[in-house]
Nucleic acid binder design. Structure first.
Lengths: 196, 196
DNA sequence: GTCTATACGAAGATAGAC
DNA sequence: GTCTATCTTCGTATAGAC
């Protein structure tokens, strides 16, 4: 039963997830305000009313879940790169956003950043938690690659900030050049932090 | 006549500017979508209909003017610091945003970044131009302070990206710590770029 | 020329039929 | 439990009175 992927319950579960994924995409492209439950329900092929069955907390809940989902995915990405001893965690992190940018022709960016600049403090809090997760994971990765513990935290924060900023610049200029340039400079910075 | 600050025409001109300044603040706090012409008109003490007399292009025009205004102010700030030989252009740029963050208790950020992630390509284009202005000014400043010409452009881009990203992180965490950390790292980077 | 009143659409959310 | 129809509010924009 539970292995039957065509079962009604299976489809329903899939629908719920598709709504969260769809929400993440719309938020990444236009911010929290641009995400309409109506349009999202239409795109997912479910009636508007059903949205409140799956998400009793309404729009706020859906937004939070979407941001947390992307947040967890990226945290995992960083963790995987770290445990595999990849010494280019920078690249892994930046490439994730490069793919989002290119796949959307620079229309979409980072949904966590969108939540960070939302008016609702609730969404900002979620963004804070996700950024903190990324920061922790990146700090560990930098320490693993030889950056002194005292410096790693500050450097990891800069990696998150610079990359997020580069994504915004890339959207404005419709080029991934900002991301390339920032990664190059961050690499220099990490290298010099390792040396001393 | 033109020096009479209490003249009706004087007040009108002031009203128009106040609307642009007010728009910039709302955009900085909640993004382009959060800026309502209704609320803005109320706050400025003018009827909603008058908005379209001052800004025939409607909301889009007001948004663009607001973003360009802040953009020009910051460009001037960088230029002033450069011509006065300030070797901490980084600090001047970052402090500008630190003030915005603290004055709003971390509710407001950069309106240009907000335009960069807007759905309307028109606003993104304005953001691109403003970012380009800042980039040019910062590149010149870095060259003046001894950074090789070939490196200065890349480094300036990183300064803009990292600072903008730090503002977003600061809003999420309701602390200016990210800005401090990023400025510290950027200073190291500039210093090392000067040395070699 | 300045402002009042309103048109028109879309948003989030819910009530209630089935 | 699932979906239809609707309520209320707020957005941009405009028509037309003064």
């Amino acid at each position: 039963m539970t292995t039957d992927t065509n079962a009604p319950t299976g489809r329903r579960t899939d629908t719920r997830r598709r709504m969260v994924v769809g929400a993440a995409k719309v938020i990444a492209a236009g911010g929290v305000d641009a995400m309409s439950l109506r349009e999202l329900a239409i795109q997912a092929g479910v009636p508007l009313g059903s949205t409140y069955h799956h998400f009793p907390g309404g729009k706020a809940q859906l937004v939070d879940e979407a941001v947390r989902l992307v947040g967890a995915q990226v945290t995992q990405l960083i963790e995987d790169a770290r445990t595999q001893g990849t010494d280019t965690v920078l690249q892994v992190f930046a490439d994730r956003w490069r793919r989002v940018l290119e796949a959307s022709e620079y229309a979409a960016g980072c949904p966590v950043a969108a939540a960070a600049v939302a008016t609702d403090p609730r969404h900002q809090e979620v963004a804070r938690e996700v950024f903190a997760d990324w920061h922790r994971a990146l700090t560990r990765a930098l320490r693993d690659s030889g950056v002194p513990a005292k410096r790693a935290g500050r450097l990891a924060r800069t990696v998150v900030a610079a990359t997020e900023g580069a994504v915004a610049l890339a959207r404005a200029s419709r080029t991934s050049d900002p991301l390339d340039e920032v990664v190059a400079e961050l690499s220099e910075l990490v290298e010099s932090a390792r040396a001393r």
